[in-house]
Amino acid sequence: MVELSRKDHAVTHHKSVEISDPAMETLNVTIKYGESIAVNSCSLKFQKNRVTAIIGPSGCGKSTLIRSLNRMNDFIDDFSLTGQVMFAGEDIYNRKADPVEIRRRIGMVFQKPNPFPKSIYKNIIWGPQINGFKGNPDELVEESLINAGLWDEVKDRLNGSAMALSGGQQQRLCIARAIAMKPEIILMDEPASALDPKSTARIEDLIEELRQNYTIVIVTHNMQQAARISDYTAFLYNGDLVEFGVTKHIFTNPDRKETEDYITGRFG
């Protein structure tokens, strides 16, 4: 049974879902790789300090869409995007927008944990340091690790290699590394799909806590997970945004047949 007890806000009609205070917004975003369309005219708002889940079958464009939110697609040769991705009052694909600055403010956690082959301490402090961090590094490291729920496990081996941590610990380190930057938005592309159930539960708890201070966008294949942790859900199918709404409604009473088929496991 899908557990939905945590919803604390009351948006009733997902058709007219009201995003009152978006941290970010896509406007008719179409993304192509060469000639093939991966995301088709997608308009979405991400509510501030809430968790928005992006779900949909494999290959439907979830990663493509989430990577476009902090310009991580820039490194793909034949990538092109039309439409606008609005953040802090600007289109981040505006010619004058600085992708480095954008990524400072919009962090990302990847599917596979990717800590640097350096110490735990260095992993956390590297990002802030190259971006001119002036405060007390020890405090920042401690605070980030505490917020990522990893402090107790690693406080005695901060100078040990991050590669020696377990997969779940590595992923929490990557989350700690992302929050050490104090971003406004954290993007997560299937952050728990490579982890065991226990580590997954820890990551989910963590997202629940981070939600207080950050806007979170998460791609997931796990329906229960989307239902448990997100406030809003966007269902993508074949590059099209089929349905977007309050998670509870998407999962209990979806508008569209495709959404229902997908969440009940009839395809995908």
Binding site: N70, M72, F75, V100, E101, R103, R104, R105, G107, M108, F110, K112, N114, P115, F116, P117, K118, W126, G127, I130, N131, C174, R177, A178, M181
Partner: peptide, 23 residues
């Protein structure tokens, strides 16, 4: 994935090359 990890933390291409890739 390491490179991307670097970029996702607001590193410039030069920082990624000298501090992630070369090490």
């Amino acid at each position: 994935t390491l490179k991307q990890g670097g970029y996702a933390l607001g590193a410039t291409p030069f920082e990624v090359i000298t501090q992630v890739i070369i090490p």
